[in-house]
Computed example of a mutant assay.
Amino acid sequence: MIHRLQQNILYSCVEHKKRSNEQLVVEHALGYVVTGESHFYTNQGMQIFGEGTIGLIRKNQLTKTVKAPGADGAPFKSINIFLDQHALKRYSAEHNLHAPGRYTGETMINLSHDPFLKSYFDSLLPYFDQPDQLSPALAELKTKEAIELLLRRDPKLKNFLFDFTEPFKIDLEAFMNQNFTYHVSLKQFATLTGRSLATFKRDFQKIFGSSPEKWLLKKRLEQAHFLIAQKNQRPTDVYHEVGFENISHFSTAFKNLYGYSPSSLL
């Protein structure tokens, strides 16, 4: 169950292990794992955030997330506050705070041992039993409080929070070869590489000699073939890992390319 108390405040409760469908963190997110575990898979590997973890995740991050019950069987429960650009720009203007430079630190910051942030999340718990008590005005106050607490902990987070510049143009070939397994839209890939959608498609054609759609499909299927044939993984475990939404689409595309079903490799 995912319950959005207000536009930027989200409560999750999952009884069984579950993959998240969203693979792009669009806005900065401050999260607290109440019970259970959250597994984050990025190009740097996997990180496990267990019960009591408080973390800050930077916007525009590609990640695959699995929510899982804890070792004691307790369901996964979490609270997430999304610090969207509109709220941060208002706060920046009101307090005359600006980013003195670009943020170059960690994209996931562990804040678990901060007692003030722990108390902050504890103050939100009653609203999940009585969601109608969290008005838009209260939600705005709680969002401002979160920003205040982050800056109290580390004033240098101004670069993290108040950098409103667009992603700069980066090496498209390297980025796509590292991130082709993430199921996000072409527009999102374009934004992450610092390009308009039209420029992204034009640059892509020059570099790869193919449209993004055809290249992504073939690249994902080749990776799936390797994982099944060489790593003995099952198609039902592979399709999501390489960037497909469902097993039916994956199986059909695989057979169209190779002439046989993925299960025939087992």
Rank of each mutant, 00 (worst) to 15 (best):
S12L: 07
S12H: 01
S12G: 06
C13H: 07
V14S: 09
V14C: 08
E15H: 06
H16Y: 09
K17P: 04
S20E: 12
S20V: 04
L24Q: 08
L24S: 02
V25I: 13
E27N: 15
E27I: 00
A29M: 06
A29H: 02
A29C: 11
L30G: 04
L30P: 03
G31R: 04
V33A: 07
T35G: 00
G36V: 01
E37T: 01
S38N: 06
S38Q: 12
H39E: 08
Y41T: 07
T42P: 02
N43G: 15
Q44S: 14
Q44R: 14
G45W: 05
G45Q: 04
G45L: 04
Q47D: 07
Q47L: 08
Q47T: 14
Q47Y: 02
F49P: 00
F49K: 03
G50L: 02
G52C: 05
G52T: 00
G52L: 01
T53E: 09
I54Q: 03
I57Q: 14
I57N: 04
K59V: 00
Q61G: 02
Q61T: 10
L62S: 03
T63F: 03
T65A: 12
T65C: 14
T65G: 05
V66E: 13
V66D: 04
V66W: 05
G70A: 03
A71P: 03
A71S: 13
A71Q: 09
D72H: 00
G73V: 04
A74S: 14
A74R: 05
P75A: 00
S78T: 05
I79Q: 06
I79T: 09
I81H: 03
I81F: 12
F82Q: 09
F82D: 05
L83K: 13
Q85G: 11
L88A: 05
L88N: 03
K89W: 05
R90A: 09
A93V: 08
A93N: 13
L97I: 15
L97K: 10
H98P: 00
P100V: 03
P100T: 08
P100L: 04
R102E: 12
Y103I: 02
Y103L: 04
T104P: 00
G105Y: 03
E106P: 02
I109F: 10
I109M: 13
S112V: 06
H113L: 07
H113T: 06
F116S: 12
F116M: 09
F116H: 15
L117N: 06
L117W: 07
K118L: 11
Y120D: 10
D122R: 15
S123R: 13
S123D: 15
L124E: 06
L125I: 15
Y127T: 06
F128P: 01
D129A: 11
D129F: 07
D129V: 05
P131V: 11
P131T: 10
D132V: 13
Q133K: 15
S135R: 10
A137L: 12
A139G: 13
E140C: 09
L141A: 15
K142S: 12
K142T: 14
T143C: 15
K144W: 09
E145W: 03
E145C: 09
E145F: 02
E145K: 14
A146H: 10
I147R: 08
E148A: 07
E148H: 15
L149G: 10
L150I: 11
L150C: 11
L151W: 05
L151H: 08
R152Q: 15
R153C: 07
R153A: 08
D154I: 01
